[in-house]
Structures are given as C-alpha cells and as structure tokens.
C-alpha cells in the first residue's frame, strides 16, 4: 500500500513537471521544472533499488546539466521578449494532437502486448558494489572511451563558444 502511494505520488509530480518543462513560457521556470522532474526521477530509481543511478542522477543531471542551462540563460542575458515564445498556431495544435495520439497508441499497443509481472520488490543487495564490479570488468573499454568523449566535448564546447577574433 505504501509502495502504491510512493509510486503514484512520484509519477504524478513527474508528469506535471514534464508537462511544465515544455509548456511554460519562461526558460528559467522550465529549467526549475526540469530540476524537479530529474530529482523525482532519482527518487523513482532509489525506490527501485538502483541506488548508484539515483546518486549520479542527482549529482550529474540536477547538479551539473541543469545548472549549465541556467548559466547559459544568464550569460545570454536575453530581453524579456526574447525569452518568450510565440503562441503556437491552430494547425500546430492539431498536428500536436495527432502526434500525441499516434505515440500514445503505439505505446499502448506495446504495453498491452507485454506479458510480464511485477518489478521485484526485494532489492538487489549492494547495488553500487555490483555496478562497480560490472563497470570495471565487462564495460572497462566503453568506460575509458567515454573519458575521451568527455575530453572532446570540453575542447569542442570551448572552441565553439569562444569569441571569434
């Protein structure tokens, strides 16, 4: 019963904040809604027993990526009329409805075709230890390659954002 309560609470607020991210008109509000969304998603991960993923979700996503968004909004120093988007036109609403209906139908068919039971409520013990064991044995090469990717991203973003001479 308390499991149900936790899940529906998290799911409700995640849905609300996802809708808020794409519908609000001010980017700062959207970024704050994104923080709430990602934080609650970390709660879902912890609820499922994925402690390590929940921790890096909070540290990397809410701590680094969204703060990067807020920094860029600050650096751009936009006028209030730049910050606002124009209201979508009527045909855009129609296409939006069709797209949503199509995706929802595909998702419904997929979920309907699933024949699976409940997510195990007994948590895997020592989640972080087990993840580390797999990460540094089977996935050692991808782990190292990702470090090169991060280095390239650092150099690339500095080169792109640099003021041209």
């Amino acid at each position: 019963m308390s499991d149900q309560l936790v899940f529906w609470g998290l799911a409700g607020f995640i849905t609300l904040s996802s809708v808020a991210v794409v519908t609000v008109r001010n980017p700062v509000t959207a970024a704050v809604a994104l923080v709430i969304n990602l934080f609650l998603l970390a709660g879902v991960y912890a609820f499922q027993g994925a402690d390590f993923v929940a921790a890096i979700q909070i540290i990397v996503y809410t701590g680094a990526i969204v703060v990067l968004f807020l920094f860029v909004i600050m650096i751009l120093n936009l006028d209030p009329e730049h910050l606002r988007s124009p209201r979508p036109r009527i045909w855009e609403h129609l296409v939006l409805g069709v797209v949503i209906a199509g995706f929802a139908y595909i998702g419904y068919r997929f979920l309907d075709s699933l024949d699976v039971g409940k997510v195990a409520s007994n948590r895997l013990p020592d989640n972080t230890y087990d993840v580390a064991m797999i990460l540094f044995s089977n996935y050692l090469w991808p782990f190292e390659i990702v470090s090169i990717l991060i280095l390239l991203a650092i150099v690339g973003s500095v080169a792109i954002a640099k003021k041209p001479k």
């Binding site: 994925a50 993923v53 990397v60 968004f69 860029v72 990460l135 089977n138 990717l149």
Partner: peptide, 20 residues
C-alpha cells in the same frame, strides 16, 4: 544501470556542446 551511466555521460557532453 550501466547503460544509464553511459547515457548520462553522453547527455552531459551533448548538453555542453549544445549550449556552446
């Protein structure tokens, strides 16, 4: 969960380059 770890890393790179 390992795959989520890599997705988060790539997302961080993507956000940095995209915002630049």
């Amino acid at each position: 969960q390992i795959m989520v770890f890599f997705v988060i890393t790539v997302a961080a790179c993507e956000a940095a380059v995209g915002l630049a």
